[in-house]
Computed example of a mutant assay.
Amino acid sequence: MNTTGEQRGEGPGPDLGTAHRPLLEADALHVSFPGRGRRAPRKEVLRGISLSVRPGETVGLVGESGSGKSTFGRAVLGLVPVASGTVTFDGTRIDNVSRRARRALGRDIQVVFQDPYTSLNPSLLIGDTLAEPLIAQGVPKERARAGVGALLDRVALPRDAVHRLPREFSGGQRQRVAIARALAISPRLIVCDEPVSALDLTTQRTVMDLLLEIQERTGVAYLFVSHDLSVVRALSHRVAVLERGEIVEEGDAERLTRDPDHPYTRRLLLSAPVADPVRQQERRRERERQFDADTP
């Protein structure tokens, strides 16, 4: 993976032909939260979002902090209520379903959260952390624990990790554990909510390469949420750009990131970090000129 802006690597990849119906589909999705104060109006965070993810596809959802991108991921996961609109998975509505139905969806939809330092239970051994989702789905304990070694192999961690606690691992290794946990029950979709933003650039590359390798091997689909367009385009087939709760641009990842139509997308592209400080300063000045030109 390359965080400087190159598109994902060449290769046959998953079949993303038009014959596939969407695996995940959100239609006219609205999400709002109570305002501050008893009489304050509700704050609308998502305003009619429509977005789909096909089997084996990675769709990047990118925007600045407060744009609503993480709220969209949480709405898909059932962690926030949907005010209106629908979310369907493999043709079945999943918005605002019962807790029992949501637990059953855990077999098909998993998540990797942003912070590897807080997303793992610090008091659980890694072996127990990885066995837990299997046991929750009814797999016998002994069989679940026997499968943990294979999970560690898939994310290139040593098998003796089962006897260690999360604090004994680096941030990148912890995120590998989180990915292994998400893979434990062979999901069809993984929501990746800023999964590399807490990591240094070198570790980001390692984790992103791992996600690509897993997708090529298993055909899992990703909804990849991030504020960093340069990271999103390195992994995604398609990208949707979210500004203030609305999608302002969507399209093929390479086209959108090389020749964006919307001024907000252009500003996001210019804000992506580069290693050269002189070039970074030039990009900052260009971003400021772009903002001035686009502001009425």
Rank of each mutant, 00 (worst) to 15 (best):
I179E: 02
I179S: 00
I179Y: 01
I179P: 08
I179K: 08
A180F: 00
A180W: 14
A180C: 12
R181P: 10
A182G: 13
A182I: 01
A182H: 12
L183M: 13
L183T: 01
L183D: 06
L183F: 09
L183E: 03
A184Q: 13
A184H: 00
A184L: 03
A184M: 13
S186N: 09
S186W: 10
P187A: 06
P187G: 07
P187M: 02
L189K: 05
I190H: 04
I190S: 03
I190F: 06
I190G: 04
I190N: 02
V191C: 11
C192L: 10
C192W: 09
D193F: 03
D193H: 04
D193K: 14
D193S: 08
E194W: 11
E194T: 09
E194L: 11
E194N: 11
E194V: 11
P195G: 09
P195K: 00
V196K: 03
V196T: 10
V196S: 14
S197F: 05
A198R: 01
A198N: 03
A198P: 09
L199E: 02
L199T: 04
L199A: 04
L199W: 01
D200H: 10
L201R: 15
T202N: 15
T202D: 04
T202R: 10
T202M: 10
T203S: 12
T203D: 05
Q204C: 13
Q204H: 07
Q204I: 05
Q204S: 11
R205T: 06
R205K: 13
R205W: 02
T206Y: 08
T206W: 04
V207A: 05
V207H: 07
V207N: 05
M208H: 07
D209R: 15
D209M: 05
L210D: 07
L210S: 12
L210M: 13
L211F: 04
L211C: 07
L211P: 09
L211Q: 06
L211Y: 02
L211H: 10
L212K: 14
L212W: 02
L212Q: 12
L212Y: 02
E213H: 11
E213G: 06
E213F: 00
I214L: 15
I214E: 05
Q215A: 00
R217G: 01
T218A: 03
T218M: 05
T218H: 00
G219V: 02
G219M: 01
G219I: 00
G219S: 00
G219C: 06
V220A: 04
V220M: 01
V220R: 00
Y222L: 03
Y222N: 01
Y222H: 01
Y222W: 01
Y222C: 05
L223E: 03
L223R: 14
L223I: 02
F224G: 11
F224H: 04
V225F: 12
V225Q: 13
V225C: 07
V225W: 10
S226Y: 09
S226A: 10
S226P: 07
H227P: 00
H227M: 11
H227L: 08
H227S: 14
D228N: 15
L229H: 08
S230Y: 12
S230A: 15
S230G: 12
S230D: 01
V231G: 08
V231N: 13
V232P: 14
V232C: 13
V232D: 15
R233P: 09
R233I: 02
R233V: 01
A234Y: 04
A234F: 12
A234G: 12
L235P: 09
L235E: 06
L235V: 15
S236V: 07
S236T: 04
S236M: 06
H237C: 09
H237R: 12
H237S: 08
H237V: 02
H237G: 10
